[in-house]
């Protein structure tokens, strides 16, 4: 992706909250969310938190696609490591779908954590914009 590394002079930098309601491989919504986050960060904006809700909680699963296929979850993880983005999987939505259960100590992919809806609302309150994908 060819993005300018330097922001235009006088640009007002914003802080975003992103909500992803789509699973990583069903449709393009999750990919669009990732592309938006990447582009915003590259232009000097901030992404405080990405909250995976509804079908979006399937981002918590450790996927192992063949090496020549795209791995969206791994790219989110790299983005989180590079820019300090907080990737949160909704606990209630994940439990409903059997993606996660409180008793297990299963490690998530680096950069991801499990928490409740309050973290989404808190982030929405404190950041400039909320974008919802899917």
């Amino acid at each position: 992706m060819d993005v300018e590394e330097t922001a235009v002079k006088g640009t007002r930098f914003l802080e975003f909250t992103i909500q992803v309601n789509a699973s990583p491989y069903a449709g393009a919504a999750a990919e669009h969310a990732y592309r938006f986050a990447q582009a915003a960060l590259a232009r000097g904006h901030k992404v405080r938190r990405v909250f995976f809700y509804g079908e979006g909680v399937y981002h918590a699963l450790k996927v192992s696609p063949p090496a020549d296929e795209f791995n969206l979850v791994a790219r989110w993880s790299q983005l989180a490591m590079s820019y300090g983005v907080d990737l949160v999987i909704c606990s209630a939505a994940a439990q409903r779908r059997g993606v996660w259960e409180p008793q297990t100590q299963d490690e998530l992919i680096p950069g991801f954590r499990i928490a409740g809806l309050a973290l989404l609302v808190e982030s929405v309150l404190e950041t400039d914009r909320l974008l919802v994908f899917g």
Binding site: E55, A118, V121
Partner: peptide
């Protein structure tokens, strides 16, 4: 449409809990 309505209401009630 799956769990969509239920999960939207859960989110709405969480926002309400924040006194918004």
């Amino acid at each position: 449409d799956g769990l969509r309505a239920i999960e939207t209401l859960d989110l709405l009630l969480t926002v309400v809990a924040f006194d918004q």
